[in-house]
Amino acid sequence: MFTLQGYGPLLLKGAKLTIIVGAGAMVIAILLGLAAALCKLSRFKIPAMLAEVYTTVIRGIPELVLILLVYYGAPTLIQDFATFLGKEIYVEIKPMAAGILTIGFIYGAFATEVFRGAFLAVPKGQIEAAHACGMGPVLTFRRILLPQMWRFAIPGLGNVWMVLIKATALVSVIQLPELMRNTDLAARNIHKPFTCYFAASLLYLAITIFSLVFQQWAEKKANRGVRRES
């Protein structure tokens, strides 16, 4: 019963794409999160407000709706806009790009909160000391704030990654041949849906376990300079 009848490699290939989509989305989420967190903490009202709207709106809408909105909605929106300007164009977004961009965009909102907390966790004295040494805001950020905040951000980012990698399963609805989609194909072909989806779930579980181990290692490494009371 528990054989995949030669569809194992297809599932593994899907898992590889799942990890690629997840990693790509995570990079976007981190960059967006950093930018939005800085906006939220800045003195300027308009960027702070924009970042607030971004996190509030994104966290209130299901991922699936956003993925469908970007994949199906964005091309027609652009086309309608072009028609409005008097031009006929045809726009199509590739499933891969739509998946990575949307998931990155969604989890950027969650990463924003992580980074905001992490920036605030860096002791104020550090920043005052940097100013006292004559560093400007950019230099203070690059030399003092950015290297020190990772220690506080890693646990939160680990959580974001765990949720994000599971959310990549949703990209299967826009036909990207990642793990979930390939499992679908296998299940249809060998008429063993339980076996196939169970195998897929174990692959996701393996990714989760590996991520947990990696996170522990990263936390240890990031905290290596911290004195522990024993």
Binding site: A169, M180, A187, F194, Y197, S201, Y204, L205, T208
Partner: peptide, 23 residues
């Protein structure tokens, strides 16, 4: 808890909805 928190909800839904067909 580890299984249900470590796998995507979509897999769980398919496992129950389509997977039950196997039995």
């Amino acid at each position: 808890n580890f299984y249900f928190r470590g796998t995507p909800l979509l897999v769980q839904i398919f496992l129950i909805y389509y997977g039950s067909g196997q039995f």
